[in-house]
Simulated assay, not measured.
Amino acid sequence: MKRQQWKGWGPGEQAEQHYLVEPRALAGGGDLRHVSEFLRACGWRDKSKAGGPLAMESPDRMVRIAYDPFVLPGGWTIHGAASGHQDEWWAALGRQTPVEIVAGLTDALTRPRSAHAPNVWAPLQEQNWRNQPDAGHVTATSPDGSAWMQYHQGPDGEAMWWSGAKDKQGNGWTAHFTPSTPMHLVQAFSTALASPEPVMRPLGRVPQSAQIRTTSVSVLPSELSAWQQARITAARAATWARNAARSSRPRTTARPYANTGGARTHR
């Protein structure tokens, strides 16, 4: 285990021990606020009941996100309602899915969709994941073999995506996406899954696994708070910019028409 000390501490604060954990897929669940506070800063409604599971709803009420540890198998459920050409969709992620990977998907729900065609495999290939094509499905596996992303085509031709991570002791998580899940969201998930960046966990929250590598770091509470606040501030700024852009667009109005029997024309 490596040890590292952060510089630039101010007086009167006591450093706390944390660990940088890699690979991130085996880091354990983490702090739910990494997901929920970002969504709240983006204007999502907190529908949670006191003492109950986490429940968030998008501003347009088309997407709901929940985390429920009180049921089996428990974990995250993300549900998108049908809209226009988009069918209803679901994603389910196990309770030990790291919040940083969950946020890869949930953060993408708050941003405009890219004009580029999504490619779920591209982030994995960039990190040297191995592709293993087989009859009816293709699986990409992380270099250390602990995480995977699988595409499976069923007999009816529908595409199913399945992912997860597991150590040699059998500890881990899985994630499932319905065939109708928007591909840009699956790509956002695979990007977060494949990221080589370690994630931080406090003392006592590091999983016991021979397959993880840890670096001990001493962190001031003010530093940790500043990092968390930076993520929230960025979410608020992006949301404000999008709302300002929408409100500045000129509104279209109906042209006056000659008589009540005439056809209405719009600009």
Rank of each mutant, 00 (worst) to 15 (best):
T253M: 14
A15I: 13
Q153P: 00
T233I: 06
G75Q: 03
A263D: 13
P182S: 09
T214M: 09
Q96K: 14
L32E: 01
Q14M: 14
I212D: 07
D46N: 15
S195V: 05
A235V: 03
Q187I: 05
E16F: 15
Q14T: 15
T139S: 11
T174D: 15
A15T: 15
T97N: 04
W6S: 15
A230D: 07
Q150F: 00
G8C: 09
P143G: 09
S218A: 14
I232A: 04
M62L: 13
T252R: 12
A210S: 09
R236M: 11
P196G: 01
A235I: 03
V186R: 10
G261Y: 11
A194Q: 01
A165E: 06
V219D: 07
P59N: 03
E13H: 08
R231F: 01
D156N: 11
Q169V: 09
F38E: 09
L39H: 04
K168L: 10
A147Y: 02
A159W: 12
S180T: 10
M62G: 01
T253K: 00
P202T: 10
L26G: 04
P118I: 04
A159V: 14
G172W: 02
A234N: 05
Q17Y: 04
R255T: 12
S36V: 10
K47M: 14
Q14H: 15
G51K: 06
N243E: 15
G261T: 08
A230F: 03
A50K: 06
C42W: 02
S247N: 13
P69Y: 00
R3G: 12
S190A: 09
A210C: 00
R113S: 06
P179C: 06
A241V: 13
A117E: 02
M56F: 06
V102G: 11
A159L: 15
A175F: 03
W76L: 10
G145V: 08
A244C: 06
S114E: 05
W148R: 08
E197Q: 14
M183R: 11
T141W: 14
G172C: 03
S163M: 07
A147F: 02
I78L: 12
A140V: 12
T260H: 10
H116G: 08
C42K: 05
A91W: 02
G164A: 05
Y67H: 11
H152K: 10
T174P: 06
T233V: 07
G10D: 08
L72E: 14
A159S: 12
L193T: 00
R130L: 09
D68V: 01
G29T: 05
H137D: 03
W9V: 08
L109R: 04
E16P: 12
G94E: 03
R61C: 09
Y257S: 09
P196Y: 00
N119M: 11
R267W: 09
L224H: 10
L224P: 03
D144V: 12
G28R: 07
A117I: 04
D87I: 00
H266R: 12
V99I: 04
V35C: 14
A258S: 11
W121M: 02
Q208K: 13
